[in-house]
């Protein structure tokens, strides 16, 4: 059966309507979970609010487990699902720069859209900076074109890298996520004692 669009089951302009609907649901969930506030998001780095970690890891393990069950039941062809290709060094650098940007800016692109949507000027500032950043990258691209394509490993999965099954990888992720939920709950309780405010709007 799935995925529907790559298999040509849904065609024409319908995919844009679906994109719009999926985007709307995405924006709604980000905003209603509290991702439109940069101070909520940054709490993950200082221990007073772990909402980012909770939402992020829960979503990840649910999707992972679901995807593997769908594959098992033959509802989705895992080979046709887009597995992000791995470029070792550029992706490590990218993660590095984004980590820095995260702790300074307090948003990521998706959450900045929702911050803009409810009228936060810092969301607009972040988005503006983001546009400038992408523009700078594109203009300077010839300087590091070789680096950008270096370390290519193909559309490799985590299981293939560590030569274990992806089911085991998922199981380990689930366990790690649940341990993380518990530990951060303990940390949060401790940190919040010394704070008057830990949730922001």
């Amino acid at each position: 059966m799935g995925p529907l669009i790559p298999q040509g089951i849904i065609t024409g302009q319908w995919d844009f309507v679906i994109a719009l609907l999926i985007g709307t649901a995405f924006g709604f969930l980000l905003e209603s979970s509290g991702f439109s506030s940069s101070r909520n998001i940054a709490g993950v780095f200082y221990g007073y609010n772990f909402v980012v970690l909770r939402v992020f890891f829960t979503a990840m393990i649910v999707a992972m487990v679901g995807l593997l069950y769908f594959n098992y039941l033959g509802w989705i062809e895992l080979d046709m699902v887009f597995v992000l290709p791995t470029y070792l060094a550029p992706m490590i650098l990218g993660g590095f720069i984004m980590g820095l940007g995260f702790v300074i800016g307090g948003f990521c692109p998706g959450t900045s859209y929702t911050a803009c949507a409810i009228g936060k000027l810092d969301g607009f500032a972040f988005l503006g900076g983001f546009i400038i950043g992408v523009f700078i990258f594109a203009e300077a691209f010839p300087l590091f074109e070789n680096f950008y394509y270096s370390g290519y490993m193909g559309n490799i999965t985590i299981g293939e890298v560590f030569s274990v099954s992806n089911e085991l990888v998922t199981f380990i992720f689930v366990i790690m996520a649940i341990v993380a939920f518990y530990v951060t709950w303990l940390i949060e309780k401790k940190v919040r004692k010394n704070r008057t405010e830990s949730k922001f709007e």
């Binding site: 940069s38 650098l93 990218g94 993660g95 590095f96 720069i97 984004m98 980590g99 820095l100 940007g101 995260f102 702790v103 300074i104 800016g105 307090g106 948003f107 990521c108 692109p109 900045s112 810092d122 969301g123 500032a125 972040f126 988005l127 503006g128 900076g129 983001f130 546009i131 400038i132 950043g133 992408v134 523009f135 700078i136 990258f137």
Partner: peptide
């Protein structure tokens, strides 16, 4: 926010 956004853009 602008600086963070720029870094995110490049990263």
């Amino acid at each position: 926010a602008v600086v963070g956004g720029m870094l995110f853009g490049i990263g």
